[in-house]
Design a protein around this nucleic acid. Structure first.
Lengths: 341, 341
DNA sequence: TGTTAGCACTCGCAATATATGAGTGCTAAC
DNA sequence: GTTAGCACTCATATATTGCGAGTGCTAACA
């Protein structure tokens, strides 16, 4: 069966209405809701077809229809209105410039949650292909070195190194100069074996330390399990009864706390991200099994220099997709621009 | 009226029984539950007294009794059994040694939540009275300085400073020596105005930078709102129906996410902490208004050098106080010892 | 004087019955 | 192709009932 123009209008009306009310929507409602001037009986026939095609279902025999995942999907892909007017209102909530990235992202998560009334997540940018900006070794005591590693984008990592040999201030100074001269501006891929052995040779008796430091650098840049994720508005899920039966809610809250699942979501999103940057996972499409009853909308932001991260909204399937997409787009734009000042 | 020996036994039996079952407990149950060999009628008389004295209430006319906050309080203060046997079992969950403090504390929170089945919180140690170990300035570019501040206990803070004047490597070197020579080993209280102005004089034309750096140091050491708090097992609250009505649950989850309330709790706990280190807040005694229906048990740990922090368990008022206290004591001991290796 | 058996009473809760009404599918007529 | 009409379904709301756990009180007992 084909999805005729009229069927689409009806489906759209059903979804719209359901998003608003959260109640199954009946034929009479649609008859009045649309400009089609059709009686409820006619609508009923069409709805029977739409049900057969898998876009809507009845929760029980004598109830109206609600959209299936497929129904939402068609809606999101082809029927969603662009309501750019909203963007105007969002502008007021411009992210205040934070000097620290983590603060900025925390705030971003909060902003998204407050504006949308759903739960939000923001991943810190992954910095895989990033360049070293500065290495700074300091002598803490006879057997410990503090290595501060600054990466493009002013991401700062600290590592405390235990060193076997005794070191003095002069050595530290020399090592600092050596390392910074040769490593600054390089990405982790460019720090290859040849370079390392050359450095070790130049470091002479301190070659062990050079090795340790480079390990630390590699770890700092690569740190997978350190993928920070900020969440906010977790308790917003209580605003949607369909997510609040004790069991599902508990699992959801757990997922937000553990962040493991979210982390997978981020990885997946980043790898799949397309031009527009916006992705919508509806119900079972979700990569996260605990969120089968939710919809997830994500966007990828780009701070430049390959520093990409994910922002996302998690809410009920009957979320206001337009609003969420607009919000994400707006925040995405703000983040994109913030570092390209 | 006086709380006779017999009344205490009955009260204890009521609390015990209620902790186990979560159901209001009736006179007949107590009659069988205790060794008093009294009929239910006699127990009823005693219970009427206990109710009059404010230790128990009936949720409704034809129900058994449940403890009031005051009832719990008496129980916790004077009737709680020491079941040290449990500690043996806990030993298996020894905290693995983590090199990073934040990881260790995260793990601590998780351990507590898993072991007790309640929600847990762990605050990072406050470092108010701590001593500066090392300041390290590095030149990032013409107008930015990176200040790395290491505090006793190897807590490391970074700050990026925007400086108005142009600086070169030599200046940075001089400043580093100046600052470290004079500030290392001092606590924030010891860095007074006189010392600051003396340093500024010595810094000559770079006195502005000195001021900025000292501000940064003060901020790093004092950073109140940076009081990190790790939580775990938030979703455990779903295991206790009395906390799970949508409204209360939402507020609780919110409090755990925001952490503002928890932060106040920590501050209060630290200021009130006594010898034993264990504190119990029952219901309305809680300093946090969103937790009026919970009990909170906290302990203060001490990593030495004035680095004190709080660990805590939040659960329903009918929590297993013995188990919780034992768990906290055990973890407290483990934390206390871990840095005094 | 403290303890106990007995009894009427309360009230939450679960089970059952009843009514309501929104919504459907189908058929026959337009 | 569209529509009015009608019998039918079924979730939800409301009232009715019975049950039972538990109480307070009284009177008898040791």
């Amino acid at each position: 069966m084909e999805l005729s123009e009229r069927k689409m209008i009806i489906l759209q009306a059903i979804v719209r209405n359901y998003l608003e009310t959260g109640e199954p929507v009946g034929s009479r409602t649609i008859s009045k809701y649309t400009d089609l001037n059709l009686s409820s009986a006619t609508i009923r026939n069409e709805m029977a077809d739409l049900e057969e095609m898998g876009y809507i279902v009845q929760p029980h025999t004598s109830a109206g229809r609600i959209p299936t995942d497929a129904g939402y999907r068609v809606y999101v892909d082809t029927m969603m209105a662009e309501k750019d007017k909203e963007v105007e209102a969002l502008k007021t909530n411009l992210l205040e410039k934070e000097e620290r990235l983590d603060q900025l992202l925390k705030q971003t998560a909060k902003l998204l949650a407050t504006n949308t009334n759903y739960a939000s997540m923001v991943s810190a940018p992954s910095i895989h292909q990033n360049k070293l900006k500065l290495i700074q070794l300091s002598r803490v005591n006879d057997s410990q070195l503090l290595a501060v590693i600054v990466i493009e984008g002013n991401v700062i990592k600290n590592t405390l190194l235990d060193v076997s040999e005794q070191i003095n201030e002069e050595t530290v100074l020399k090592l600092n100069i050596l390392l910074n001269t040769h490593l600054t501006g390089l990405s982790i891929e460019e720090i290859n074996l040849k370079l390392i052995s050359s450095l070790k040779t130049q470091a002479g008796i301190h070659s062990d330390i050079v090795g340790d430091v480079i390990d630390a650098v590699a770890k700092a840049i690569h740190d997978e399990d350190d993928l920070e994720i900020y969440t906010s508005g977790t308790n917003n899920i209580f605003k949607y009864p369909e997510l609040t039966d004790s069991n599902a809610a508990s699992e959801l809250i757990g997922a937000f706390e553990e962040k493991q699942a979210l982390s997978e979501l981020v990885v997946k999103t980043l790898s799949e991200s397309e031009e527009t940057g916006i992705q919508v996972y509806i119900g079972n499409e979700s990569p996260v099994s605990t969120m089968k009853d939710c919809s997830i909308v994500t966007a990828t932001y780009d701070l430049g220099d390959g520093m990409k991260g994910t922002i996302g909204i998690i809410g009920p399937k009957r979320m206001d997709y337009e609003k969420v997409v607009d919000n994400l787009k707006d925040v995405m734009r703000q983040l994109d621009s913030i570092y390209k000042k």
